[in-house]
Amino acid sequence: MGSIRTLNGDIDASQLSVTYSHDHIYCIPPYWAERQDDDLLLDDPTASERELADFYQAGGRAIYDATAPDYGRQVVAVAEMAKRQQVHVIATTGFNKGFLWSSKRPGSTQTFADWIESSSIDALVEHVCHEVTTGIEGSHYRAGVVKCGTGYNTISPLERKTMEVIVRAQQCTGAPMHSHTEMGTMGLEQAQIFRSLGLDLSRLCFAHMDRNPDPWLHRQIANTGAFLSFDGMSRIKYYPEHVRTQAILALCKRGYQKHILIGGDFARKSMSAHYGKGGLGLKFILADWRPRFIAEAQEEGLDGEALLYDFLVENPARYFAFG
C-alpha cells in the first residue's frame, strides 16, 4: 500500500490505525490574529497537547493536521507534541483559500496574495515540493499532504493558480492531495479543472462535503474517484447531526463507503475541552459520535462498526499513502 509521511518519519500504511482525516492541533492563523478573533487562535500549546492526549485515550492514533502555511502552521511544536503523545500527525503544505491571503507571510513584508501573484508557477511548485521532500521552513519535518482551496461558489484567479501548483506538486511527489471547498461548494468545478490538469483524482480528497449535504452531488464527487471528507461533526448550527449521518449512509447504500473519510475540523477554542470554553473536545468523534453513528446505521440495516473501520482505518491508510 506504500508509506505515509508523518512529522516524525515515514511509516507503513498498515501502522496508521484509527485516523481523523481533517483537524487542526495548534495554529495561529495570521488573518484571524490581525482581526483579534481569539476563538480561532489555537495558541496554547499545553491545551492543544491535552487534546491530543484525550484523542489517544479515546483510541485515536493518527491525525491529518490540515493547517496550511497561510493558516498559521506551527510544525515544530506540533511534531514535538505528537511524539510525546505517540500520535502520528500528518502535516500539509500548500494553500488554503483566497480570502486568507491578505495577511503577511511570516518573516516577510509580502502578503500571501502578493507572493502567489508575483511568483511563477514553477517557483511555487518547487517550494511546495521542497516542504514534502526536504523540510518545512528550515526544519527537518516534512509534509505528507499537498493542499489547495477555493471560496464560496467561486474560484478566483489566484486560487486557480494555486490549484495548478498543487496538482503539479502532487504529480512530482506522489503525495496525497487535499482540496478545501468553502461550505462544500465548487467540488465538481474543481474536479473539472483538476482533470484538465491531468490529476489522478483517486489521490484527492474534497474537504467539507457535509457542509453541503446533497446526496446527488456526493455521488458525482465519488464517481470521480476522489475521497469525500465529512468533517463537521458537532456543528449543529448548520443542521442536526442526523442530516450528516443520513448523507453518509446514503453514499454507503450506493456502495461508496470506500470513498469516505472522517474528521472534526477542530479549529476553535470553543470546540476544545481544555481551552477554558467547556467544549466537546478532540475526542468527541470517537467517544460520542461513533456510538450514535453505529446505532443510526443499524436502524438503516447497515453494519456501523464495519463502516467506521473503513472510514477511520482502511480508507485513510489508502488515501494518505504516497503513490
Rank of each mutant, 00 (worst) to 15 (best):
G144F: 02
E182P: 00
N8A: 00
K269F: 00
L7V: 15
M186E: 08
H130F: 09
E300A: 11
V125D: 00
M81F: 03
G72N: 01
H208I: 12
H208N: 12
C148R: 00
K83A: 14
F284Q: 06
V313S: 01
H88Q: 07
A33I: 04
D23V: 01
D122F: 05
G98E: 04
H140S: 04
R168F: 06
S120D: 14
A306H: 09
M1S: 06
M209V: 15
V243P: 07
A207K: 05
C252F: 03
D44H: 04
S120H: 13
V243K: 13
E137V: 08
T133V: 12
G9W: 00
Y20G: 09
I121S: 11
L302T: 11
T109W: 09
L7G: 14
F55S: 02
V78K: 00
Y319I: 07
R235N: 13
A175T: 10
G279N: 03
W101C: 10
Y71D: 13
G279F: 07
G60I: 06
H242W: 14
L217A: 10
I236Q: 14
C148W: 04
S14Q: 13
L7T: 11
E296V: 05
Y309G: 00
A191M: 05
E126P: 05
I248Q: 03
W101F: 12
F284L: 06
Y71A: 08
Y64K: 11
H127C: 08
W216H: 15
T154Y: 10
F194K: 01
G138F: 02
L251I: 09
G107H: 02
D54Y: 10
G225N: 13
A82W: 04
A317C: 08
Q170E: 07
K83D: 13
D44C: 11
D39T: 01
F322P: 07
V128W: 07
C148M: 12
K253V: 03
S229I: 06
F99N: 12
T134W: 07
H242R: 14
L312V: 03
F311G: 01
D200Y: 09
R292T: 14
G198Y: 11
G276W: 00
D210L: 08
L280C: 07
